[in-house]
Design a protein around this nucleic acid. Structure first.
Length: 267
DNA sequence: ATCAGCACCTGTTGGC
DNA sequence: TGCCAACAGGTGCTGA
């Protein structure tokens, strides 16, 4: 589900409603996420005040006043929202905040994770550059691609290189850049990599502007759907006409993931 | 270095 | 209508 634009949308919709609030109580109903919720999770969160809500790659980071950080990854189907719509199926964790707000974590497939860390978190240390940060530049992308035989789409989705892109936006970015997903990263010309870099920024910013993509169950911090799925040029459009040239969009499997591209727009 | 295959889960969809 | 297989936004492991 959530790639960078969705996580960023959750962050923006949640931020004003949680920052400055004290965590009154924590209720964990299901600890079996991809990484099990630790036994002392509730205790370590309770009583702390949320100072800020940040995003790094696809992770949400709640900065707490005791110096710890509450780290959340939404996995494939995770939702974190303040609209407490009662006792719903797959509501695994509920966090009661001062002022009467309750934040609920819902995740049908349980591929997400959350834990409280103090000091550097190993899962963050391994992440590459955030594609919206200044460190992501045509030069840094060229450095990542140099001498690499792996497909450019695979490189874009590698969180150790660029943190935040997933299967939807990798396909959409490469369409916008006019580059075939299966091209060897190291074989791309300087101009093509510059196009991939520029397309990354454009696609992500547009997706964030539209509140992310809701295919089935993604919702923002207030329970609302995103709209970028209406603007997909290639993702899940195999067999349909390209919006630019009318050729049929094709699908193939690349590194185990469905990949979509236009055979004429992407040389 | 790189990738296929599999694993972790539940829910939805499409074919028969 | 039911049954079953395939597939879904992510990540991480194994083995080749």
């Amino acid at each position: 589900m959530p790639e960078l634009p969705e996580v960023e949308t959750v962050r923006r919709t949640l931020r004003d409603r949680v920052v400055g609030r004290r965590i009154e109580s924590v209720r964990v109903r299901e600890r079996r996420l991809r990484v099990p919720v630790e036994a002392d999770f509730d205790r370590r969160l309770t009583g702390a005040t949320i100072l800020d809500l940040r995003r790094v790659g696809k992770y949400l980071l709640f900065d707490l006043d005791d110096g710890a950080v509450w780290l959340v990854h939404l996995g494939m189907t995770g939702c974190l929202a303040t609209t407490a719509a009662g006792l719903e199926r797959h509501n695994h964790v509920a966090v009661d905040l001062s002022g009467g707000t309750t934040m609920v974590y819902n995740d049908p497939r349980r591929f997400g994770l959350m834990r409280v860390v103090r000091g550097p978190a190993p899962e963050l240390a391994a992440l590459g550059v955030d594609p919206l940060s200044p460190e992501f530049s045509p030069e840094s992308l060229r450095g990542m691609a140099r001498d690499r035989r792996r497909p450019i789409k695979n490189l874009l989705m590698d969180q150790r290189c660029i943190a935040g892109l997933g299967n939807i936006y990798a396909s959409e970015i490469l369409f916008r850049a006019g580059v075939r997903p299966g091209r060897r990263a190291g074989g791309l010309r300087r101009l093509e990599l510059a196009a991939v870099h520029a397309a990354t920024r454009v696609v992500l910013e547009e997706a964030i502007r539209l509140g992310g993509s809701s295919i089935s169950d993604y919702r923002d911090g207030e329970g609302r759907s995103g709209h970028f799925q209406m603007h997909f040029n290639v993702y899940a459009r195999d067999g349909e006409p390209c919006r630019r040239c009318d050729a049929r969009i094709r699908a193939r499997v690349l590194c185990g993931r469905s990949t979509f591209y236009c055979p004429t727009c992407q040389g």
